[in-house]
């Protein structure tokens, strides 16, 4: 089997597994959590483009997520725009904003880039918090309508699950294709060494801004979807903590791996639910697990998964000899 075929087959299997998941959790709140796993996967996939592929850190990605959510929310709740139109405008304007700030910010490297994106995230958060007349301020913005197609409204968990996962699977497919394309190779070259990439003829500056913009647009889409699913948003969901959580998802999952982003998002979203049995100590167990994963699986869950598979097949081969 060629690598490309294996890639397609793997993706189809993954998509099929996702699509039948709701049948196992039809009446459970787990379905509701899986909706958020979808949103978080979309965000992790977006950040992975930047952090995993191109090796550029962003500690402000919750801001793009929030911009998407707030532009959608304000336009539909306060000015009764069509939700799909609002979503489009949110994605485009967030993209434009990312493109404009991308040029100066992405000139920075390492810790300085982390600082700049951190600052951007905090500024956006403060704007959400302080412009009370526009965003409702810290007490939030209620009354955001659900998305709908004609008479069909996405107003319960199962409908939202398929809506959101449609977007998430699409973003994952695009990411997988990108990884194997010329641009993907150029991005990985930037990740390894910017100088070498430039010498090899890659337009480093433009490419970094482009991938930053793309990442922001996908995050904004996730934000719009979040706003229309929750029907309520408040600034606390888009703060610095969430930016860090996103970075954690990508790193725990495995830098550069699209399925890793899913694994990271799934673990970080689902784990707290299962750890509730530890009551007040759940946070300690949660932290410990994260430390253990990073210590023993430096390549993240995706890397650990791959190593385990390799070992398994090797030991089987040895057994056959």
């Amino acid at each position: 089997m060629t690598e490309a075929k294996r890639d397609i087959l793997g993706f189809l299997l993954f998509a099929a597994a996702v699509l039948i998941a709701p049948f196992f959790f039809a009446d459970s709140y787990i379905l509701n959590v899986l909706v958020f796993v979808g949103i978080n996967t979309l965000l992790a996939v977006a950040l992975n483009l930047l952090l995993g592929f191109a090796g550029q850190i962003s500690l402000g990605h919750a801001a793009f997520f929030g911009l998407g959510a707030y532009i959608s929310g304000v336009m539909t709740a306060a000015h009764s725009f069509d939700p799909w139109l609002a979503m489009l405008i949110a994605a485009v304007s967030t993209g434009v904003a990312a493109f404009i700030i991308g040029f100066p910010i992405l000139k920075l490297k390492g810790h300085y880039l982390a600082m700049a994106t951190l600052g951007f995230g905090i500024i956006v958060y403060i704007v959400f918090n302080e412009t009370v007349d526009l965003t409702g301020g810290p007490s939030g913005l209620p009354g955001i309508p659900n998305l709908s197609l004609g008479e069909f409204s996405f107003d319960n968990d199962i409908k939202n699950f398929y809506l959101i996962w449609a977007f998430t699977l699409l973003a994952m497919r695009i990411s997988l294709n990108l990884y194997r394309s010329r641009i993907g190779r150029a991005l990985r070259a930037i990740h390894d060494s910017e100088v070498a990439a430039r010498v090899a003829g890659v337009n480093v500056k433009n490419l970094k801004v482009q991938i930053f913009t793309m990442s922001a647009v996908i995050s904004a889409l996730a934000g719009s979807l979040y706003a229309h699913t929750m029907t309520f948003i408040s600034p606390a969901s888009f703060g610095f903590n969430f930016s860090v959580e996103l970075v954690t998802m990508v790193i725990i999952g495995g830098l550069g791996s699209v399925y890793g982003s899913f694994m990271g998002a799934a673990i970080l979203t689902l784990l707290p639910e299962f750890l509730r049995i530890f009551h007040d100590y759940d946070i300690i167990v949660y932290g410990l697990l994260l430390i253990l994963i990073i210590m023993f699986m430096p390549g993240g869950l995706a890397g650990g998964f791959r190593t385990a598979l390799e070992r398994l097949s090797r030991s089987r081969k040895q057994g056959a000899d």
Partner: peptide
């Protein structure tokens, strides 16, 4: 259930209380 002051977690926990 603890919401941690986070709207998303509050919604998940409310769903859990009602459905499960």
């Amino acid at each position: 259930y603890d919401t941690q002051g986070d709207a998303t977690k509050a919604v998940q926990a409310a769903n859990r209380l009602i459905k499960d």
